[in-house]
Computed example of a mutant assay.
Amino acid sequence: MDLPGCDPGRLERTYAQFALVNRAIAGWHGIYRARVRPRLSPDSPTSLLDVGCGGGDVSVLLARWAARDGLRLEVTAIDPDPRAILFARGRHAAEGVTFRQSTAAELIEAGDRYDVVVSNHVLHHLDGLPAFLAESASLSRGAVVHNDLRRSPAAYALFFASSWVFTGSYIRRDGLTSIRRSYTAAELAAAAPAGWTVARHAPFRNLLSLDTSRGGYRARPAANG
C-alpha cells in the first residue's frame, strides 16, 4: 500500500478497515488512559502530534476520548503521503483534528513542538529508527509514545487465521509482512538509544516511550551519510 501506483480503491478500503483493526487490537484506549489522559486538563489545552497518521482513525479516537472525559486536547496528525491526508480529511472533516501533509523533519524546521508525540504502527516501516526517534523527541516537550507490533509466532498465526475477512484491501498481505518486520521487545530495546523505555502491551504490542519533560534527554540528529 506504500507504493505510489497501488490501486486507489483498495487503498481507501485499507484505510477504512484499519480503523476497525486499530479499534479492536491496537490497544489505544489503554494507552490513552495510562499515558495520555494523566497529562490532560479541563482548563488548558494539551497539544498532541500523531506522526504517520495514515487514515487518521487513531488521532480521532484520542480526540473523542478526551472530549468525552471533559479534557482539552488539540490533535495534529501528519503523514507524508497525500493519499492518506486526503482520505483522513474526507472521512474525519468534523472531528476536531488537524490533518497536515508533512514530515516530522519539516515540523522541526518550522520550530513546532507538542506536549505529547505518538505514532501507531510506524516503527517497523523504518530503515532509520534512531533518526526517527531523535525527531520525535525533538518535537516533544512532555512525552513520546510509539505503539508498534511485537513480533511473535502467535501474533502471526492469529492474524493469518483471522484476517481473511478483510477483503478488497491490502490489510492481510501488508499486515503479515508488518508482523514479520516488527521487533521483539528485546530487539527494540537494543535498537533504541539510551533513555527510551520499552514495555510490552497487549495484544502483541511494544510501547517505546520517552519522558522529555524533565530535561534529562537531549535528542541528537542522526549524522548524514
Rank of each mutant, 00 (worst) to 15 (best):
D2C: 03
G5I: 02
C6F: 06
R10Q: 05
E12L: 15
T14I: 04
Y15N: 12
Q17G: 08
A19R: 12
L20K: 14
V21L: 15
V21W: 12
V21Y: 14
N22T: 11
R23H: 14
A24W: 13
R33T: 14
A34C: 11
R37L: 09
R39A: 12
L40H: 03
S41E: 12
D50G: 15
V51F: 07
C53R: 07
D57G: 13
S59I: 11
A63R: 13
A66Y: 06
G70A: 04
T76Q: 07
D79F: 08
P80H: 05
A84K: 10
I85Q: 03
I85E: 03
F87A: 06
A88C: 12
G90W: 10
G90V: 11
G90A: 08
H92R: 08
E95R: 13
G96W: 07
V97F: 09
V97G: 11
S102W: 03
T103H: 03
I108S: 05
G111A: 02
H121M: 10
V122D: 02
V122P: 04
L126G: 06
D127W: 01
P130S: 09
A134W: 02
S136G: 05
A137R: 00
A137L: 05
A137H: 00
A137K: 05
L139H: 00
G142F: 01
D148N: 11
L149D: 03
R150W: 00
R151K: 06
S152A: 09
P153C: 05
A154M: 07
A154W: 08
A157V: 08
L158S: 01
F159A: 03
A161H: 03
S162P: 00
T167D: 03
I171A: 02
G175D: 00
R181S: 00
E187H: 02
A190R: 08
A191D: 10
A192W: 01
A194M: 07
G195S: 00
G195F: 12
G195L: 01
W196H: 06
T197S: 14
T197I: 12
H201F: 09
H201L: 10
A202R: 13
P203S: 09
F204R: 08
D211Q: 12
S213W: 06
G216E: 13
R218G: 15
R220K: 11
